[in-house]
Design a protein around this nucleic acid. Structure first.
Length: 864
RNA sequence: GCCCCUGUGGCGGAAUGGUAGACGCGACAGACUCAAAAUCUGUUGUCCGCAAGGGCGUGCUGGUUCGAGUCCGGCCAGGGGCACCA
């Protein structure tokens, strides 16, 4: 070691510096947001977490991404709101209670405390003063009030609906608790059971929810497409077939179809297994009853039904064709028709629907083409194993013959209307939102059931209806339901003995309005402070996982509309910008016995993997989502204590496009750690050569000017990258700047002012991603005020613009040479310069090019 | 089955229809060192060639274009979503 090599002395102590700066941010309360009408606001929100226990560094990606945006926007002059809270009701707390005898409340709040401590290490610029958990009565009391508002507005109602019932545990199961049709604890076959439950009328806003997707131009197209499909608007007709004879009260069967134009190609009617007509027919037909029971047992997911064999059962009934009373069709019960959708009955047109075709072939039903592809003869056209779903002319269809599908559809609907048997109808796939859950750890539904008065709202003055704490989880079923006293209350209306509603709300309700409460979490008498929500909402940037693309986001969109109707908000769309980030994966390890091993339990030597400190071989698995069960998790506290959290933040932003999955690797962390030290070292080396703070960098020449250009170009490009969520590209730009600084000799004559500008700019640019290092460096550069209060640098356009450009020279589209020219040169001058090149002369061999394409400042292509 | 997304070096990935492989990781070589670590410098798609240079290259296959990783058609592979969407 020599005294003259300063690199030996400077080493950035991340762990110490980070703790110091976090303490100072906290002390000075710098992240507390306040309404300030004089500044543009910016509301950044990451989807709040369920407090399940501990977080790992994979969770950090989401929060760091939001934090980078929050810190950048703050420096760019925005008044930033960046709050945090807890989605604290839910099933895992009850599972923990049942398995380990801990109370859901205690378990939840302990988890919150542990996770908060871990999150703090990440150096997030959060305003903790607005924190709440959705299980706080101070939060859910307002949710109960809004439930009553919705009830008053007709947006909440009760109806019968099926649940998964475990006949052994005598309890309702969530979908995830049903495994292969069996209850997860009891193993008993799950039954369908009808219960009267509460629903939110989300379908009242179906049109709005679909149409307004167009306005969400800062949402991923993918998410908008998923929501549009989910809402599923279809246009068609609803109409009745008369029954030739009926086993029940119905004399007709009503079907819904989007293709009434193909009605002359109909060959059967199919009804759902739980259609009233099916039930009626089954009363006298035991075989049909058995078939219906069998249908009830098959899984109800779309994928399962779609791939399952299409089965039908002929009821023996006949339905009369509305356009030809001499024509009747068989009525089948089919396992692919759902009672929930449309009318629960369809007509099958095998020639033009693949599923109907397979059904018809199976049961020997006629296949009659009525849409003839262009160029085909109407009488000769036959359907083989593929239904024809394309365009064409109608044939064999009486008054529809010769029309195209659109015209035929309109004409068929007119005819149905004239006959008085049906009408045009818009149908939605979207169904109302069932919010009742037969669970303890959720927001109680504020209703009292009275034998005389029916369901009666709990008076506002009596809210919140709080959960009793003396509950047990040793028996199956809902602890609220079997609590000795809690549910017994007088009717608020007549005073007679009555019972509380013991269902609690779906936890998706809790997460449907928390972002509004964050605007001001203090009012005790109302859900929102309108002055605060008017200022802060909508959320400018919402960040979370793609798994919430449909339900959570759709429910929140419904909820703000309902809240608006109730006077609690003035907006209709909660999230102006949405970003869905990918997961963090990590490779997995298993020992010879197949036991999962954590990253700390293994070591790599010579390209092989062993358990740490031994020669026991380890099987290396592919990178998978970090999860406790596979032990491939990295705790944030470990990174914070060793490399410093800035290093982790940097790595999380650096490797992959943020919307894609990204693998956490030791090599990647090492690379990030090297950069942290490199910046620190370069800064320390350059410091003695820098000009004073505020020195003008104007008038630089030569290599110094070149460096300055790079600095300003980096500002320009990184700013764009951050605006567009291209963190990985921004990181690459910063590496380029650091590389340029590393290659620059700090002793260069007259470089002092540019050096200062360059390093100050670098520090400001890395600040959103590495906020602690930036503070430490900023202080070293002689600043008393913190970087969090500093302004984002501005690029000077004249330094961003290039005055010379390199054009590629192509001959017949192949690159043959390149040429450096002044920017924006006239095409003729460019052509002349290019024609003078040796490579071009050689290629032309004295001739003239047939064509010359000059793309300004880009490329010249000669066609010879 | 339906809807959506993604296929680029050894790896993660760059690239408004205009020089494919920026930047990082890894690897190799060198400098410094007694040695190592750290750091620095250089090389690194592939094939032919001493070199200059050239051929081939973005899952496959057609097409549009002066020019295609990028646009269009048809395949193949991987991933995600799904509540028979009538």
């Amino acid at each position: 070691m020599t005294e003259t090599d300063p690199r030996m002395h400077v080493r950035y102590d991340a762990a110490a510096a980070e703790a110091r700066w976090r303490a100072r941010w906290k002390e000075e309360d710098v992240f507390r947001a306040r309404i300030d009408a004089s500044r543009p606001k910016y509301y950044v929100l990451e989807m709040f977490p369920y407090p399940s226990g501990k977080i790992h560094i994979g969770h950090g990606r989401n929060y760091v991404m939001g934090d980078v945006i929050a810190r950048y926007k703050r420096m760019a002059g925005f008044n930033v709101l960046h709050p945090f809270g807890w989605d604290a009701f839910g099933l895992p707390a009850e599972n923990a209670a049942a398995e380990r005898g801990v109370h859901p409340k205690g378990w939840t709040y302990e988890n919150i405390a542990a996770m908060k401590e871990q999150l703090d290490l990440l150096g997030l610029s959060l305003d903790w003063s607005r924190e709440f958990a959705t299980c706080d009565p101070a939060y859910y009391r307002h949710q109960q009030r809004m439930f009553l508002d919705f009830l008053r507005l007709g947006l909440a109602y009760r109806k019968e609906s099926a649940v998964n019932w475990d006949p052994v545990d005598m309890t309702v199961l969530a979908n995830e608790q049903v495994i292969d049709g069996l209850g997860w604890r009891s193993g008993a076959p799950v039954e369908k059971k009808m219960l009267t439950q509460w629903f939110f009328r989300i379908t009242a806003f179906a049109d709005d929810l679909l149409n307004d997707l167009k306005s969400l131009d800062r949402w991923p197209d993918k998410v908008r497409a998923m929501q549009a499909n989910w809402i599923g608007r279809s246009e068609g007709a609803s109409f009745r077939f008369a029954l030739a004879a009926s086993p029940g009260d119905d004399e007709t069967v009503e079907v819904y179809s989007t293709r009434p134009d193909t009605l002359f190609g109909a060959s059967f009617i199919a009804i759902a297994a739980d259609h009233p007509l099916a039930r009626a027919a089954a009363r006298t037909d035991p075989a049909l009853a058995a078939f219906i029971e069998q249908c009830g047992r098959t899984a109800t997911t779309e994928a399962a039904i779609e791939t399952a064999e299409k089965l039908g059962f002929d009821t023996g009934l006949r339905a009369v064709h509305p356009f030809d009373t001499n024509w009747s069709l068989p009525v089948y019960v089919a396992n692919f028709v759902l009672m929930d959708y449309g009318t629960g009955a369809i007509f099958g047109c095998p020639a033009h629907d693949q599923r109907d075709l397979e059904f018809a072939r199976k049961y020997g039903l006629p296949v009659k083409p009525v849409v003839i592809p262009p160029g085909e003869d109407a009488d000769a056209f036959m359907i083989g194993s593929e239904a024809y779903t394309g365009e064409g002319r109608m044939a064999h269809s009486a008054f529809l013959d010769g029309l195209d599908a659109t015209a035929a559809k309109a004409r068929a609907i007119e005819a149905l209307e004239r006959l008085g048997v049906g009408a045009r109808q818009v149908n939605w796939r979207l169904r109302d939102w069932g919010v009742s859950r037969q669970r303890y750890w959720g927001c109680p539904i504020p209703i009292v059931h009275c034998d005389a008065c029916g369901p009666v709202p709990v008076p506002l003055a009596d809210l919140p209806v709080t959960l009793p704490e003396d509950v047990t989880f040793d028996a199956p079923g809902n602890p609220l339901d079997r609590h000795p006293t809690w549910k017994h209350v007088p009717c608020p209306s007549c005073g007679a003995a009555a019972r509380r509603e013991t269902d609690t709300m779906d936890t998706f309700v809790d997460s449907s309005w928390y972002f509004a409460r964050f605007c001001d979490a203090s009012p005790a008498d109302r859900p929102t402070d309108l002055a605060a929500t008017d200022y802060w909402l909508p959320v400018d940037q919402y960040i979370g996982g793609i798994e919430h693309a449909i339900l959570h986001l759709l429910y929140a969109r419904f909820f703000v509309r309902a809240m608006k109707a109730a006077g609690h908000l003035h907006i209709s769309e909660p999230f102006a910008g949405l970003f869905t980030q990918g997961m963090i994966t990590h490779e997995t390890y298993r020992d010879a016995n197949g036991r999962w091993l954590s990253p700390e339990e293994i070591e790599k030597r010579d390209g092989l993997v062993f358990t740490r400190g031994s020669n026991a071989p380890v099987t290396l698995g592919p990178p998978e989502k970090m999860s406790k069960s596979k032990k491939n998790v990295v705790p944030p506290e470990e990174i914070a204590a060793t490399y410093g959290v800035d290093c982790a933040r940097w790595f999380l932003m650096s490797d992959s496009p943020p919307e894609r999955d990204s693998e956490w690797t030791q090599a990647g962390v090492d690379g990030a750690a090297r950069l942290v030290q490199r910046i620190w070292r370069l800064l320390n080396d350059a410091l003695p050569h820098m000009a004073e703070k505020g020195a003008s960098a104007e008038g630089a020449q030569g290599v110094v000017l070149e460096l300055r250009r790079i600095v300003h170009r980096t500002v320009h490009e990184l700013t764009q990258d951050l605006e567009q969520f291209r963190f990985n590209r921004g990181v690459a730009r910063l590496y380029e700047l650091v590389n340029a600084l590393g290659a620059f000799d700090a002793r260069t004559q007259g470089a002092g002012a540019v050096l200062r500008e360059a390093y100050e700019t670098l520090v400001l640019l890395v600040a959103p991603m590495m906020p602690h290092l930036a503070e430490e460096a900023w202080a070293l550069l002689g600043h008393d005020a913190m970087v969090v209060h500093a302004a984002w640098p501005k690029a000077l356009p004249e330094l961003v613009a290039q005055d010379t450009v390199t054009l590629a020279v192509q001959i017949n589209g192949k690159r043959r040479d390149e040429i450096a020219l002044k920017k924006d040169l006239a095409a003729a001058e460019v052509e002349a310069a290019v024609l003078a090149l040796d490579a071009v002369k050689r290629a032309l061999a004295g001739g003239r090019p047939k064509k010359v394409i000059v793309v300004p400042n880009r490329i010249v292509n000669l066609v010879v």
